[in-house]
Design a protein around this nucleic acid. Structure first.
Length: 641
RNA sequence: GCUGGCGUAGCUCAACUGGUAGAGCAGCUGAUUUGUAAUCAGCAGGUUAGGGGUUCAAGUCCCUUCGCCAGCUCCA
């Protein structure tokens, strides 16, 4: 049979040759690293004999599919160990996830994390035995008999679904553990030496809270102990950077408790961070052609009915009953901006009209989902709404994408872009006319293409009211977060009958885009804290400079320096307490103040100052002017776009 | 919301099977005038998250409410 390789070379093999043999033929190294193969688009195990001509790709841990196969395999291994230790266990599902895998078990009286050691030991034992995964295809009826015998009610449920979907049935056995599974898997347990069991949690069968809660065990596995260690230390580092710990420590904010769950109280230092971010945002928006507006926190329920939020978002809204009418706290800013757009008859000459507001919104979130600044009940959306004509769509989208990337660049975030389109199989799910979708979806793709940006298209992920572009931002630990989002809306312009008068004197339906760049100011600050491990860029630092006179006799000079810096808009203070210099430096370091200026007798005499920079230590003495120049340059706000 | 875990001073943590709530840091007062990550001494700080119960006796055991954490579902 003739086999094609990704580099478009071709080679002849005997029918029945396996993927592993082909990998070995290319190089012993590849055979060692190979996990699975992709043959004619289908993922297969390495030991499966190939019988026809086709193209092959040998997949290793570096390939997403290879990584998934290893992790998924490890979930089987863990399940096999659990079965050995807890024979009555029933099995749910055990997929690979972003950074590892999990398996859901129905175990009677599971003691919890304390038995991870035993499970891990059993896994290691099975790894040493190097037990092979054995794949078997069978009919639905055979599979039903097999799993009924074992009392695997969850598997039987899955089986029925597979049958209804007309899928073929395959099972994999690993020693005594037999699982319904499409595969593929790595060849044997010997591949999974570098695993770690991480945590346990409850999870409902099929994610439905009406179902029984199963015990979920999370773990991860890597191709090398080095990579495993790196990952585990990243998790440690993430814990250290947790904004819920750093934020209160640095005096930035307090959340919840007496103040109410999910509600943020910004302390003075945190308020400075917020104001800096918001001021920069406002200036940048004005420069980018937005008009700033401001809308009330509450609005009559009628407005939310027209916008339809009342019907599909009611469970997340707070209501107020006053006077004769009912009001709701705004969960979104759009209706407010609509009121402003509709305030007068609009002409094409006014378009594109870009309205922007840092609008505080309130959403009732279930208590269990609250999480630091990332998930709260009151937050500030850096909202913007663009009203434009069809011809302006591509250019406006490009402007917004560029603008969003500008904000990510300021903070050195990486990013990836996702374009979410409608599901053509389910057209009734969506608001707006099909022809509007037909116009806008290709325009979004074209906007990104023309900019040369890479993006992933996700079919069926569009909001019901329109397609969207989501930018995921990548932080210093390589984690992705929800970042800027740009969403078309066909629903609101229709519901509110938003129009403009065109050159032809006729009224036309306006196109509308929602966009948020920080997303939520609160969440964004949470991201910044973790991204920078609390060492915010100097322009955001609540306290930028502390001046440390060594003795009281330098106080006069210290005040002189302070007034120079203060008049240049630098946030600084003098720490003249009668503590040792070491003590005061330590305190400045732990509170992450970027610059320390130390003044002793020597410095005062020579009109110099000793500069110390947070994290990098003593910079020695220098002319006062020079030090001030360094501080001012360090604290300079980012250039506007 | 659901399942599980947790809740002791502003923070980090002690208090054996129920038997007088205790330290370090931070705070305050005083001494010290200091040269690049912790000077010394003293003082103060608590209805052990709130409520109820069992007991001669509850931080500890039971019930309940609240809050926090992990996960599920959802999401900016």
């Amino acid at each position: 049979m003739r086999i094609n390789f990704p580099d478009s070379s071709t080679k002849e093999y005997d029918a029945g040759t396996t993927g592993l043999e082909i990998a070995g033929d290319i190089s012993p190294g590849l055979a060692r690293n190979a996990l699975i193969v992709r043959f004619n688009g289908e993922l297969l195990g390495l030991s499966e004999p190939l019988h026809e001509d086709g193209s092959i790709e040998i997949l290793t841990f570096r390939d997403e599919e290879g990584k998934k196969a290893l992790r998924h395999s490890c979930s089987h291994l863990m399940a096999s160990a659990v079965l050995k230790l807890y024979p009555g266990t029933r099995f749910g599902i055990g997929p690979s996830i972003d950074d590892g895998f999990y398996y859901d078990f129905d175990i009677q009286d599971f003691p919890g994390i304390s038995v991870f050691g035993e499970i891990a030991d059993e896994m290691k034992r099975q790894i040493k035995e190097n037990i092979p995964f054995i794949r078997k295809e069978m009919s639905y009826e055979e599979a039903v008999v097999l799993f009924e015998e074992k009392g695997e009610k969850y598997k039987l449920e899955l089986l029925k679904e597979l049958r209804d979907a007309g899928e073929s049935i395959s099972v994999y056995s690993l020693g005594g553990f037999v699982d319904l599974c499409r595969g593929p898997h790595v060849r044997s347990t010997g591949y999974m030496k570098n695993f770690e069991l991480l945590s346990t949690a409850g999870a409902y069968w099929r994610g439905d809270e009406k179902n029984k809660m199963l015990t979920r065990i999370y773990g991860t596995v890597f191709d090398s102990s080095k990579n495993l260690k790196e990952h585990l230390s990243m998790l440690e580092e993430a814990k250290k950077r947790d904004h819920r710990k750093l934020g209160p420590e640095l005096g930035l904010f307090k959340i919840g408790g007496d103040g109410g769950p999910g509600l943020v109280y910004w302390l003075p230092a945190g308020t400075i961070v917020r104001e800096e971010l918001e001021n920069h945002w406002k200036k940048a928006h004005v420069k980018a052609g937005y008009q700033l507006v401001s809308t009330p926190h509450i609005a009559p329920v009628e407005l939310w009915k027209t916008s339809e939020h009342y019907y599909y978002y009611r469970d997340n809204m707070y209501f107020l009953n006053m006077d004769k009418g009912e009001y709701a706290l705004k969960p979104m800013n759009c209706p407010g901006h609509i009121i402003i757009y509709r305030n007068s008859k609009r002409s094409y000459r006014e378009l594109p009209m870009r309205l922007a507001e840092l609008g505080m919104v309130y959403r009732y979130e279930k208590s269990g989902v609250l999480h630091g600044l990332m998930r709260v009940r009151g937050f500030t959306v850096d909202d913007g709404h663009i009203f434009c004509t069809e011809d302006q769509i591509v250019e406006e989208i490009q402007k917004v994408v560029r603008f969003a990337l500008y904000f990510l660049k300021i903070f050195n975030f990486g990013y990836k872009i996702e374009l979410s389109l409608m599901d053509p199989a389910d057209p009734d799910h969506y608001a707006g006319k099909p022809e509007e979708w037909m116009k806008v979806e290709p325009a979004l793709a074209r906007a990104l293409d023309e900019m040369g940006e890479d993006y992933r298209t996700v079919i069926g992920e569009a909001a019901f009211y329109g397609p969207k572009i989501d930018i995921k931002m990548k932080d210093a630990l390589g984690r992705y977060w929800q970042g800027p989002t740009i969403q078309f809306d066909f629903n609101i312009p229709q519901r509110f009958n938003l129009t403009y008068v065109g050159t032809d004197g006729q009224e036309h339906r306006v196109f509308m885009v929602h966009r948020a760049l920080y997303g939520s100011v609160e969440r964004f600050i949470g991201n910044l804290i973790e991204h920078y491990a609390g060492n915010l860029p100097c322009w955001l630092a609540p306290h930028q400079v502390v001046i440390l006179p060594i003795t009281k006799s330098q106080l006069g000079k210290a005040e002189e320096v302070e007034s120079i810096l203060t008049s240049s808009d630098i946030r600084c203070s003098i720490d003249g307490r009668s503590e040792t210099v070491g003590y005061r430096i330590r305190e400045a370091e732990t509170s992450k103040i970027p610059f320390m200026l130390i003044l002793g007798e020597r410095e005062v005499e020579s009109d110099t100052v000793s500069l110390r920079i947070h994290g990098s230590g003593d910079r020695g003495s220098m002319k006062l002017d020079e030090a001030i120049e360094i501080v001012m340059a360090g604290c300079r706000r980012p250039e506007l776009p």
